[in-house]
Write a protein that binds this DNA or RNA. Structure first.
Lengths: 236, 236
DNA sequence: TCCAAAGCAAGAGCAGCGCTCTCATTTTTG
DNA sequence: CAAAAATGAGAGCGCTGCTCTTGCTTTGGA
């Protein structure tokens, strides 16, 4: 159905892909701010106006790149998780965290695109949500496995936060304790704080051995979500 | 000396301030990417080329705004810390964290400017370092007080990280244990992860009661640096 | 099979941008 | 008081995102 509509449709997906490829190259080389539709068109041997047949605006091109970046990051994390499938939850947690960091260091501009300052006036369409959730779901899965296996330590929860914690748990993982889900959301944000600080230069002149530092911090995050010092989990 | 050089020098600082004020207004209104020298000049009733007598480039204007933003954030944090001066270290820690979050929510574009994706090709000059360090120094001071008073729990440190931890401690706070300094650096990055995720929309459809969530998370960070469950500190 | 409809590339053009250069005017300084 | 420095205005260069019109090609129904 999607590939049957003749030469024209096939050419369209090819050109679309070529535009995204060239845009990604410019993004990696110069950053999102210097991504220019005209430059992309020039490099592809087309005139700039022709490009608008494929992406109605520069922001739409960026949106496409954002979704691809989320997916690329998600794939990296999932691959790392798969490679550590035989290890314990703590090792898999750390493997995923390190995959996120590794991908970010390898694709700094794409990371900045998805986790840095949002483009002004630009709000990510709902299309990006599933791709953006992949890493979170991966971490959630690790916690689920651990919860059903060895059990999870349950970080204490202040009374004021309990309603919100139960709401989040109902939304994200009804089979996990609210304490765990809340701790995961916090750890998730904190993970990106660590990666972002390293990537955006905030660790310059502060942290030198960043690899070791990050591995340790990832382990601390794991402890925060109850992955360390496991105890028998209470009945769900 | 600095104000004595006649009307021209006085006019210069006034015009410089006016430019920065107008630029800050546009920054708050539209974000850094849409900050235009021409628009600033237009609003000030001058021609765009005249503006280059005060800021040699758009990036230099941004640098000035960055330093101001760091200082504004630092002042907010210090004020909050001062207001909580009579409270215990944990309360002061949380007060500073909440001040950071509050400032970020009140000045989202300025926060994005200093803690979001760096401007492409732009590397912050060393001028920004002291201003950028103010919040960190504040948190460090809280830990120092606690360490000298009730004492701090000392988070465990893996052997692989010990050399780096000792180096960081020697650089940042030779009077504090390496475990504490390492934990602080991590908590510092994680704090900005939490703030950034909320600010940049990553918590949309995930966290609703963000105030309560953040307060809890800040308390968890405090625990991570040893501020909770204080025990008699060992000899320094 | 033919023809209207739709898809597409190209070019010209608009308004805006950062930035540079020149020129006249004003203030400061030796 | 004259030389030097600072300042503002204007024109202009090359770039940007984006729109509109003009022809050409592919497509799908009669």
């Amino acid at each position: 159905m999607s590939t049957a509509h003749g030469a024209r449709a096939r050419a369209r997906v090819e050109v679309t892909a070529a535009i995204k490829d060239e845009a990604r190259r410019q993004l990696a080389a110069e950053g999102a701010a210097k991504l220019s539709l005209r430059a992309v068109a020039r490099e592809l041997g087309m005139v700039s106006s022709a490009l608008y047949r494929y992406f109605p605006s520069r922001d739409d091109l960026l949106t496409a790149l954002i979704i691809d970046a989320y997916d690329s990051l998600g794939e990296s994390a999932e691959a790392a998780h798969g490679a550590a499938a035989d290890s314990g939850p703590l090792q898999r947690w750390i493997a995923v965290c390190e995959a996120v960091r590794g991908w970010a260091l390898a694709h700094p501009h794409e990371y900045a695109l998805i986790y840095g300052s949002p483009v002004p006036g630009y709000t990510a369409p709902d299309t990006t949500v599933p791709a953006a959730a992949r890493v979170g779901n991966l971490l959630l899965g690790i916690l689920r496995d651990a919860y059903r296996g060895l059990g999870l330590a349950r970080p204490p929860l202040p009374a004021a936060l309990r309603p919100e914690a139960e709401r989040m748990a109902a939304d994200l993982a009804p089979d996990l304790p609210p304490e765990t889900v809340t701790a995961l959301v916090a750890a998730w944000a904190q993970l990106y704080g660590l990666v972002g600080f390293e990537l955006f230069g905030q660790f310059n002149r502060v942290v030198e051995d960043r690899e070791t530092f990050f591995r340790h911090a990832a382990g601390q995050l794991a402890q925060g979500v109850g992955l360390v010092y496991p105890q028998r989990g209470p009945a769900s």
